[in-house]
Each structure stands twice: as structure tokens, then as C-alpha cells.
């Protein structure tokens, strides 16, 4: 199994390290060519405006969007979640636009609003998981069979729709690998269908 990690900007190296730790081969994705032969893709944290622009500039937007629509498992953390959303609060354009969620950027304000907390997310693990929010977005609302996996203070911060997983927070910045294992499981289930 090879998992691609979108490497246009942001914290892609952290995801690569996590994959290595659970024995999965990770591949940096910077072009359409790199999108070939991957079994799933992680869209990392960073700046969604920068990554969104580079997806267009390097002609990857439509290709990646189609692949995800056709079933390629995808997981977006923070900025990655914004790239996947069909609707971004206050903006009239989406990036990849593949998931039925309406997200709010910088929902907790500026860096002084960044925080971390702990939570048990039954779908992912029985153990509490550290959730790190860095100038994070959250989900205002969901549509069409999106499963809500986790809420913090009444705001949706993790969700899943078929082959797409999104988290407002950054499991790659913690020592807990439960989310990465869960994504690997999603890919395995996807293959057996």
C-alpha cells in the first residue's frame, strides 16, 4: 500500500513520518504524475489559500478532485479539510469541492486562539486522543450522509463521508497514531469493495 501526501506547502513531512512509524510507504505528491499509483491521499495542514492556488497552477485540481469522487480515499487535516469542502463560509469558491460540508476558516481566531484538548473518539479509538488545533477551521454544517465523528464545545471537528475523512486538528503533531491507522483501515476496506 502506498499513501500519497500532498506536498505543495505545509506540514507534509510530519504525515510522512507518521506513516513510516506504522510501516506504511508514504509518497510526496507534487504533480499529476505523483498521483498515479497511490492507494489514498493525505492533504496536510498548512495554508489552504497557498495549496489551493498551487493545485490550480500545477493543473492538479480537476484530476485530484475526480480521483476522490471516483473513490480514492482522502484524509484532510486542518487546511486539508478546507481543500476538500464543498462550501467555505464567506467565500463563493471551493477548492477540490468533494465533501458535503460547510467549513469555517480560522474559526477560533488568530494564533492566540490555538489550543489543544483531549477527547475519546469512539469510531477511532477507545483511548483519549490529543487534539491539536492551530488556527483551525471547524465544520458549520454537514449534508448527505456525512457522519460526525467528533465535536468539541458543540462544534464539529471530525467527520467522514464514504471515502473521505476530515479533521480540524492535527493527529500528525502528536505521538498517537490511531488516526493514521484508521485511515489505513479505510483504504483496506475501500480495496475489498
Amino acid at each position: 500500500m502506498i499513501i500519497g501526501v500532498l506536498a505543495l506547502q505545509g506540514a507534509f513531512r510530519e504525515h510522512m513520518k507518521c506513516l513510516k512509524k506504522i510501516g506504511i510507504h508514504g509518497k510526496l505528491v507534487k504533480s499529476n504524475k505523483d498521483l498515479e499509483g497511490i492507494d489514498g491521499i493525505i492533504l496536510p495542514g498548512g495554508e489552504s489559500t497557498a495549496m489551493g492556488k498551487l493545485l490550480v497552477d500545477f493543473n492538479m485540481k480537476e484530476n485530484l478532485s475526480n480521483k476522490i469522487k471516483n473513490g480514492l480515499p482522502a484524509w484532510g487535516t486542518c487546511a486539508g479539510m478546507i481543500l476538500l469542502a464543498k462550501k467555505i463560509d464567506g467565500e463563493n469558491k471551493a477548492h477540490l469541492g468533494v465533501m458535503d460540508i460547510d467549513v469555517k476558516r480560522n474559526a477560533y481566531g488568530r494564533q492566540l486562539g490555538s489550543f489543544s484538548t483531549e477527547k475519546i473518539i469512539p469510531e477511532i479509538s477507545d483511548e483519549p486522543i490529543e487534539l491539536v488545533f492551530i488556527r483551525a477551521p471547524y465544520i458549520n454544517s454537514v449534508n448527505n450522509g456525512v457522519d460526525i465523528l467528533c465535536e468539541v464545545d458543540g462544534n464539529i471537528v471530525a467527520a467522514k463521508q464514504r471515502n473521505i475523512l476530515v479533521t480540524s486538528f492535527h493527529p500528525e503533531l502528536t505521538e498517537n497514531r490511531a488516526f493514521h491507522r484508521y485511515f489505513v483501515k479505510m483504504i483496506k476496506n475501500n480495496k475489498s469493495v
Partner: peptide, 18 residues
């Protein structure tokens, strides 16, 4: 401190950027 970790992590998100 937690705050220092969060601040280091914001810098992580800027990587590969201008």
C-alpha cells in the same frame, strides 16, 4: 509549556511556504 508547543506548531504549518 503547551502554548510554546502550539507556537512551534504554527511554524510547522508555514513550512514549504513563502
Amino acid at each position: 509549556s503547551k502554548r510554546y508547543e502550539l507556537n512551534k506548531n504554527l511554524a510547522e504549518m508555514l513550512k514549504g511556504g513563502v
